[in-house]
Amino acid sequence: MTAKLLIAAGGGGDAITTAMVHAALHGEDAPALVLTYAWERLVVDPVPGPRRRTDFTGTEHVGDQVHLVTPRSAPVPPAGSLLPRLAADLRPALGLIDPYEGAVGLARQIVRAAEYCGADHVDIVDVGGDVAADGCEPTLRSPLGDALVVAACRRTGLPAAVHIAGPGLDSEVPEAVLLPRLEGPEFSLTAAHTRSVGDVFAWHPSEASALLVAAARGLRGVCGTRDAPDPVVLGPASAHVYRLPLSRALEINRLARALDGTTDLAQAEEASRSVCGFSEVARERERAGRQRATPGQARGGHSAPQDAATLYRRFVQWERHTAATGIQYATTRRFAEELGLSQEALPVLRRHLENSAPARSVPPLWQLRPEGRSARQEA
């Protein structure tokens, strides 16, 4: 086949952003393969760390290195993954990359994928910009996946470029820190580039990609995400995509340089501890252990009544408190987690908000209305 080859560097929602960047670079109908980790964090996958290719059934094997995810693929329990559903909703094909053989094994997988696609270069895509972290940033949380991709692409010898979409939107490296490391924007995403991913956020929890979509559609303001020290401000740079040559990304990213030559994930974790002072995989293991100790809280097991009126009154109380802190917009994931909504309760509340309080819905975000009509009037 002949197709563009892209890599969603961070896993999780980066595949969504990569589909948008592909649409901007090549056109949404151009054949493409997006390589991505099955590393979707505990909100989706209760098993800490990334999944191996062997953790899925129903993938299509292209040789021994390239495994394509299809809508018929499924994670092997107890693991969880939204990649099969993304494969149904995104236009580019999705291929799994497996970090358990370190940068050396990852490079082999990328080379085989390039051969399969007939591609002579690789586009690496990261939403937020931790691919351009130097490892010292105090808010850095998940640098390993991005750094492994950069290290592996260097080993392939293939021409590669890094595209950073929405600097700072993942709440890891602030925009003000990132922009001096980047040159002028390569292009800006527009509402047209979001067309092919617009329905994904009705079910996918990615916050950084949701913020990028909102910015591309022209939304500006202070946005609240979950588990972040500060809110994200959507501003003039939030819809921009910046291009870094692979060599420049390696200059900035000390962890990527330290990962060169690694042959398993344990070595990669040790490199992360050395450069960044932590292993995000170890942090996930610790968090998973705490969640197993409190399973009702961990998986959204709130025991309150789940009728629409009651859920809406709880939402309004949360909204007034949150808006009082200066937040104008919120992600679905933030209010779902802070209200402790179960998987059954969340769609009930969403439908109620969309039907009875449509002014709040600015897909894929929600506008907070602290001085709006009372819960009794709108319920």
Rank of each mutant, 00 (worst) to 15 (best):
A9Y: 00
G12D: 09
D14P: 01
D14R: 06
H22L: 00
H22G: 03
A23N: 02
H26E: 11
V34F: 11
V43G: 14
V44N: 00
V47L: 02
R51W: 07
T54I: 04
D55V: 03
F56S: 10
T59N: 02
G63N: 07
Q65K: 12
V69D: 05
A74P: 03
L83K: 10
A87H: 09
P92M: 00
I97H: 12
P99V: 01
Y100I: 03
V104R: 08
V104C: 08
A107Y: 00
R112A: 15
C117L: 10
A119M: 08
H121A: 14
V125S: 04
V127C: 13
D130H: 09
A132N: 01
D134Q: 05
G135E: 05
S142G: 05
G145K: 07
V149T: 11
V150Q: 08
V162W: 09
I164L: 12
P174T: 08
V177Y: 08
L179H: 07
P180Q: 06
L182F: 12
G184W: 08
E186W: 09
F187H: 07
T194L: 02
R195G: 10
V197W: 10
G198Q: 11
F201E: 01
F201Q: 02
E207A: 05
E207C: 04
A215I: 09
L219C: 06
V222S: 14
C223K: 06
T225S: 10
R226C: 05
P231E: 13
G235A: 14
L244R: 10
P245I: 01
R248E: 14
N253K: 05
L255C: 08
A256V: 01
A258D: 13
G261P: 13
T263S: 14
D264P: 12
L265C: 12
S272T: 05
F278D: 13
V281P: 03
V281C: 05
V281K: 06
R283F: 11
E284R: 13
E286H: 10
E286I: 03
R287Q: 15
G300K: 01
G300T: 00
G300I: 02
A304Y: 10
T310S: 15
L311H: 07
L311T: 03
Y312L: 11
Y312C: 02
F315Q: 12
E319G: 07
E319A: 00
Y329L: 12
A330I: 10
L339Q: 09
L339N: 10
Q343A: 14
E344L: 12
R351Y: 04
R351D: 11
L353Y: 06
L365S: 11
W366S: 11
Q367C: 12
R369E: 15
S374W: 07
R376P: 00
